[in-house]
């Protein structure tokens, strides 16, 4: 029994021994008290969740609804009422299509590489190895620094003239001339994705490693006794054991990468031109640089819709469990 509970008990006993206290209560009245308590108890449940819920309604739901309202408003001083003008403009905009494509590429590539690297390394680490703990601890470092910092470090490494990557490749005779990692149209997104893979795979790896270690060893032993080989054990024990964690990691990572802002803002600012613009940087620009509030809101709403659709399987899984 934890110490806190024990001291609690002790205090309760002291109270009972106090001559001023009513002493041991007769049984029926205790029952009534407990009944009365349980009636009020439900209310105290609301008291516990009220601060968080009210705060979230005020700081999240209300602004979100305001954005929705704004996305349906006529821009500028004009007639009131509701319009789908902005959404029409979005659908017709080549820039918006490009931004959606960029976002999709950035998110899919980042998440796929996070999961591939994360799962691969977790499988490697799921055995007795020298220095395993040290490796696990250090591997998470890229994930704990701000994504702005990650972006800046890689911007320096990828610098065309003074960057250490170009120099290394040059010395290895892989390249003959400096590569413009962050300004060449075909390279800018892959370069940003590279930095984001460095930043993000450790988290997925840690989660998978924890998942692997939660699979009971008996399952592997039983499978081995039944004559299952390495591949079969992986397919029938490891993968099913990781199913839930797979959904969680995939969902959280996807949500985070769709929302990613600082990394891209620091590395390219969306450039060159608009070639590395993603939804978050583009909404930011439309709102705070071009002051197209209604249009930016419509884009943000579209982005939110995308996020909600993407995370549907995750939400369904969690709700079913609860």
């Amino acid at each position: 029994m934890p110490a806190s509970t024990r001291s609690w008990r002790a205090r309760a006993e002291v109270k009972a021994g106090d001559p001023l206290s009513p002493g041991p209560r007769p049984h029926p009245s205790t029952a009534i008290r407990v009944l009365g308590f349980s009636l009020r108890d439900r209310h105290s449940g609301y008291v516990f969740i009220a601060p968080a819920i009210l705060l979230l309604v005020a700081v999240l739901a209300y602004p979100a609804l305001r954005s929705l309202r704004l996305s349906l408003a006529h821009p500028g001083p004009g007639p009131g009422g509701v319009t789908l003008l902005q959404y029409g403009e979005l659908l017709g905009s080549g820039l918006f299509r490009q931004v959606v494509r960029n976002t999709a590429l950035f998110v899919v590539a980042s998440v796929a590489l996070h999961v591939a690297l994360g799962l691969g390394i977790a499988l490697l680490l799921n055995r007795p190895l020298y220095g395993r703990t040290a490796f696990r601890v250090l591997a998470l470092l890229p994930w704990v620094v701000p994504d702005v910092v990650a972006g800046i470090i890689w911007k320096w490494i990828l610098n065309p003239l003074y960057g250490v990557l170009n120099e290394g490749l040059f010395r290895l005779h892989v390249i003959a001339a400096p590569v413009e990692w962050l300004t060449a149209p075909t390279l800018v997104l892959p370069s940003v994705i590279l930095a984001n893979v460095w930043r993000g795979f450790p988290f997925v790896m840690i989660i998978f490693l924890a998942g692997l270690q939660s699979i009971p060893a008996e399952l592997y032993e039983a499978a081995a006794i039944d004559g299952a080989g390495t591949v079969q054990r992986f397919r029938h024990v490891t993968l099913p054991g990781l199913r839930k964690i797979f959904v969680v990691a995939l969902a959280l990572d996807t949500i985070w990468e769709v929302r990613r802002f600082g990394l891209i803002q620091a590395m390219t600012g969306g450039g060159p031109g608009t070639l590395s613009e993603v939804l978050s940087t583009q909404v930011f620009k439309q709102y705070f640089q071009f002051f197209k509030f209604e249009y930016a809101s419509a884009m943000a709403i579209a982005m939110t819709g995308l996020l909600l659709v993407v995370s549907l399987p995750y939400v369904r899984m969690i709700v079913r469990e609860e």
């Binding site: 979230l56 978050s280 996020l307």
Partner: peptide
Amino acid sequence: RFRLRGRAWLMGFILTTQMLPGVLLVGP
């Protein structure tokens, strides 16, 4: 710990708020 009325909805609400992108909210 509590069987609250609308518990599933309230938890769904909290879960959903995790998904709202920052850029949806910064303007307002």
